[in-house]
Design a protein around this nucleic acid. Sequence first.
DNA 1: GTCTATATTGGGATAGAC
DNA 2: GTCTATCCCAATATAGAC
Lengths: 206, 206
Amino acid sequence: MTDIKNENPEEKILNAANEVFEKKGYDGAKMQEIADKAGINKALLHYYFRSKDKLFEVIFSIAFNKLANEMEFLFGEDMSIEDKIRLFIDKHADFLNKNRHLPMFIINEINRRPDVFLKVISGIYQKNDRLKKILDQFEREKKAGKLKDVDPRQIFINMIAMNVAPFAAKPVIMGILNMNEKEFEQFIKERKAVVTETVINSIVKK
Amino acid sequence: MTDIKNENPEEKILNAANEVFEKKGYDGAKMQEIADKAGINKALLHYYFRSKDKLFEVIFSIAFNKLANEMEFLFGEDMSIEDKIRLFIDKHADFLNKNRHLPMFIINEINRRPDVFLKVISGIYQKNDRLKKILDQFEREKKAGKLKDVDPRQIFINMIAMNVAPFAAKPVIMGILNMNEKEFEQFIKERKAVVTETVINSIVKK
DNA sequence: GTCTATATTGGGATAGAC
DNA sequence: GTCTATCCCAATATAGAC
């Protein structure tokens, strides 16, 4: 985490809350633990953020946007679909590697608190013209004979799913596939190429 | 759920607990709600299962084994890797479709309560000769020139990840890709073929 | 075995001094 | 703004009657 000195209380709270919520989820997180991690007491937590709910909303929103921002460039115009995919898998995997709890936290809380999720994306994702843009690009490249006749949305999900999986399911993977910590890290390292290959293979005509 | 009449209290509790734990997770689940759903009172819950922890362990273990059993046939000897994969994706997708909360529940609780997970798999998955068997089969078919030179463990993760994704992330998908309930169901339906194609494509030589 | 009533702790939130 | 002390409800768990 960032240096706990030189931070104002609000920053300290946000960092601590982020850590605790991400690791334990809304229900598992306790205000006391957040306060302890922030080096303050519970009363001050409430002074700054009024309630656990409010604090959670802020944290969730930040986390979600962090994740969403990572895909922002997908909606640009300057790259072929293939290049976008290659770059995305690379960047996204690095990002996840540095934020291993993030995807599970997001997915989980979206399932458990759809209302908070809807609040966060309302407004933001209404600009689904952005979505339309990249779907259009896909169709164009399809017609130009560069891509196979597949549903880009399915590809999108495949890509994310394969990237997220090893982090979301780390203990399961280590358990079932009998890996130790070191073998797991190696597995992660080799994975980028595998995923890239798999996705590209499934859409690019040769 | 199964018919609540004609069940003894223990069965009623297990069904109710399963439902509540799966949907809300350990921390979100309340004994009161479980008791209500089972049509009994809290005291009886404790009479049968002593504590929330004990009850959870039982539920988790059942859920995990349910999921694990679905892959049991992978370790058989009577089918080619390609056929196994085709059959697995088909069966697995159907299973998930009928148990939509299950994978998230399992993954989540494994991350949050590794100790319970370890307790459940201890003994069971020590027979990793089963794992070795299928890895060996893969190597044989590789050498026979039927399969590409890829790491079977990576393929295994890809397969599961792509199958689980739409159920784990349903609200995200609907939100980001702007789907309604009906479009989502259609998306699921088309997905089997996409996933099969993608996985087979990534390992079978042509 | 099944219930009602109660003990007990945990944890979110507020009052009020400084 | 920041603290200590306290309130208060929710939730796990137990006692004890039937």
